[in-house]
Design a protein around this nucleic acid. Structure first.
Lengths: 226, 226
DNA sequence: AGCGTGGCACGTACACTGTACGTACGTCAA
DNA sequence: TTGACGTACGTACAGTGTACGTGCCACGCT
């Protein structure tokens, strides 16, 4: 019996195996051993199918939230959980971020994240902003990571070794070794730590302002250090 | 006379006017009043054309770098410049981030950014990491902003007003008003400021370590506060 | 001048896409 | 039994990217 679930799982398998460009209704139907038009009894259109793929991938995020841990650690864990599924479905991740899905899929991670931020002491407005900023960073990072497509990419490794004129781009050519290599794990953790620390000083500033009230709010809007 | 430039500018115009889905070689040819196959005398494939579109948009970033300004302000200005062109070509921005372009386009912004970070006192490794983190945030933010497609979007405003069960998602439903509305300018500036401050404390920690050497390196790898 | 050569515009053709529509065949309700 | 309905399927159509062949024109060489 054909049903929606079999179709979307076949779709993500196909995407992971041969890339998003290889996805066609005929291809999926062949994969399932059914006629093409049978798919349309369970899925209204190809666009809707891709939306379903995105939701499916999103819903696979593991929710190992430990409310007893410090909120900074909970933030790290949630970010890594997001990243893990992206690495599990790298090519599908591209369709996830490419589509604007106005559904409630992946609402549970949002719930967890907001709860964590509330526990950190942020009010509603700040919590939402922090979350949005965090998602922006994570999505941007994943986009770069999966864009480089570690899976099945005979990529133009030659292209990145293209010459750059040291006269025109002195800094770039000086930092060439650092720009060419990229340990994705380390890079992600680096940015993650920076963001978490930034959030921590914000939270501390909030606590100070709330306690002292009047003094010590310099860290709130000025530079935290400089 | 047909040439590569006319083709790509016609392509970005078409993308901005009717969306990326509307782009086809026949459509572009019609727009230019030429035969379809004539395009292939100047562009090897549609994929290459879209790459060229991405490069073209990237190359439009304004480079108003003022080396006399404080580096934090220079970082802000460069981030805003990036964002401005994304708002000028919202739909093309989607194709920019969707494609992995291994070209040297947009190398000049990279040069400026790295120079700025070096001026801030970071060594090569840190500068590259900071830049990557920053790009991740900016790209992620823009993806959300243009995903919501302010231009020509009859969007399912009804979908976002979909009900959420307060029992299942208490925090989400409590913060509903904050989640529904989104002032993109403010959100972007918020994250930008947070990142700049985070970088500033990192730079200060570096300076301390370099000066004092031995003491005061707590902020370097541990938590800045907690 | 005659000739060859190369670049450019173009038409045709092919394999392939999403999907609207009509047609069967099964299982349940009346 | 008779109808209604849901599911699987084939056919058909408009539209896609592009390989290939054809004609035109401007150029350099003999």
């Amino acid at each position: 019996m054909l049903n929606r679930n079999r179709i979307v799982t076949a779709a993500v398998e196909l995407i992971e195996r041969e890339g998003a460009d290889a996805v066609s209704m005929r291809r999926i139907a062949a994969e399932l051993g059914v006629g093409v038009m049978s798919l349309y009894n369970h899925v209204p259109s190809k666009a809707a199918l891709l939306d379903a793929v995105a939701e499916d991938v999103l819903s696979r995020i593991g929710f190992t939230d430990d409310p007893s841990a410090h909120w900074t650690e909970r933030v790290r864990i949630q970010a890594r959980a997001f990243r893990r599924i992206a690495h599990h479905f790298p090519r599908s991740t591209m369709v996830v971020v490419s589509r604007q899905l106005g559904s409630t899929a992946g609402l549970l991670p949002v719930e967890r994240a907001l709860a964590t931020l509330r526990d950190a002491g942020f009010d509603g407005r700040e919590a939402v902003r922090m979350l949005r900023m965090f998602i922006a960073y994570v999505v941007g990072s994943l986009l770069r990571e999966v864009g480089v497509t570690p899976t099945f990419a005979p990529v133009r490794a030659d292209a990145v070794i293209a010459e750059v004129d040291p006269a025109l781009f002195p800094v770039v050519s000086e930092l060439r070794p650092h720009l060419d290599s990229c340990d994705h794990d380390e890079e992600f953790e680096f940015g993650l730590e920076l963001l978490v620390q930034a959030m921590a000083v914000r939270a501390a500033a909030r606590a100070d302002a709330q306690a002292g009230d009047g003094a010590g709010e310099r860290a709130g809007h000025g530079g935290a250090r400089q």
